[in-house]
């Protein structure tokens, strides 16, 4: 930062060589064509009755009003919010606990860290298939053998199907969050703890009063990324339940995919995508604001 300030007066007024524009503008144009234009077109479609082909006309806010009256779409929002909330809280709580454990005075630390990070490497579709088998075949037969009623049926065929998806998501989501928390914990200067030890605080107090404020930025990163990611949940649902039973595990993304290509719903699902965008944007901005404020307070 200092350097830019120093440099500024010296270079003022100097023209930036054309070559520098050439290093940004072409790819910027491509990005505009393939990312921004589809986005704008999507917004445009959401105000029409276009079915993906043929003629169309403007229908104003009809698609948006329709969305709120369609129980499948409103349920998709309800499910996605519920899922994102539980996944975010559980993944972050468990990941923080694992990170604290890994940061303790343990042996084989690097090896264990590598193991805990492993699920990050695996595609959620395949992991979803594996968990589908575990829930659908392995656990029920185990449950029947042990006469455990609650385990003898496939959770993915019950009203708790979303819990099955949640468990798989937690299994995979822990990896990344743990890594970030661990990076945060390792950045804390041990001398702070030594000073605290003299004051005679207990471990819980130590964590809440000392450690947590210090790793708050890492908490922010994890929270923002988790919420954003889980609002988009798609792969594991396609692998495990296809949105069922009923439409109980149909997330917003699954709804857009499965219904969007149906002629009658193309415009409606375009509106759905726009609402999804607004939701993600709002949540991300609120989170960043609130958490940054709290960080400032804590720091």
């Amino acid at each position: 930062m200092q350097e830019t300030i120093k440099r500024k007066p010296k270079r003022k007024g100097k023209k930036i060589p054309f070559a520098y524009y050439m290093m940004v503008v072409p790819i910027g144009i491509l990005f505009f064509i393939f990312h921004t234009i589809p986005f704008l077109r999507g917004v445009f479609y959401s105000f029409t009755d276009w079915s993906g082909y043929g003629t169309w006309k403007f229908v104003g806010l009809k698609n948006y009003l329709y969305m709120f009256g369609n129980s499948n779409i409103t349920h998709a929002y309800w499910f996605t919010f519920k899922f994102a909330l539980f996944a975010t809280i559980l993944v972050n709580a468990i990941a923080l606990a694992i990170a604290v454990g890994l940061n303790g005075k343990i042996k084989y630390q690097n090896f264990l860290k590598a193991i805990y990070f492993l699920p990050y490497m695996l595609g959620s579709l395949i992991v979803g298939f594996v968990f589908k088998f575990i829930f659908g075949n392995m656990l029920p037969s185990l449950g029947r053998a042990l006469h455990w009623g609650f385990m003898s049926s496939n959770i993915l065929g019950t009203t708790h199907a979303w819990v099955g998806i949640l468990i798989m998501t937690i299994w995979q989501g822990l990896a990344f969050n743990t890594l970030i928390y661990l990076a945060g914990l390792q950045s804390v200067d041990p001398e702070i703890y030594e000073a605290a030890a003299l004051d005679g605080v207990n471990p819980w107090q130590k964590f809440m009063r000392l450690t947590f404020p210090l790793i708050a930025p890492f908490f922010t990163i994890n929270l923002v990324l988790s919420v954003k990611g889980y609002l988009m949940v798609f792969d594991q649902i396609m692998a495990m339940t296809n949105g069922g039973p009923g439409n109980s595990t149909t997330s917003i993304s699954v709804e857009i995919y499965t219904q969007g290509f149906q002629g009658s719903q193309f415009a409606v699902q375009s509106a759905n995508a726009v609402v999804l965008f607004i939701v993600v944007l709002t949540i991300s901005l609120i989170q960043l604001r609130v958490l940054n404020k709290r960080e400032e307070r804590l720091g």
């Binding site: 910027g28 990005f31 393939f34 990312h35 921004t36 234009i37 589809p38 986005f39 077109r41 999507g42 479609y45 993906g52 954003k228 609002l231 988009m232 798609f234 917003i252 993304s253 857009i256 995919y257 969007g260 290509f261 193309f266 699902q269 375009s270 995508a273 726009v274 999804l276 965008f277 993600v280 944007l281 991300s284």
Partner: peptide
């Protein structure tokens, strides 16, 4: 700022029109 704000647009949002394009 153009690129940074584009980070808030998830793929699912542009999916339907993108397929057309």
């Amino acid at each position: 700022y153009y690129f940074i704000s584009a980070m808030f647009i998830p793929f699912n949002v542009i999916m339907l029109p993108l397929v057309k394009e």
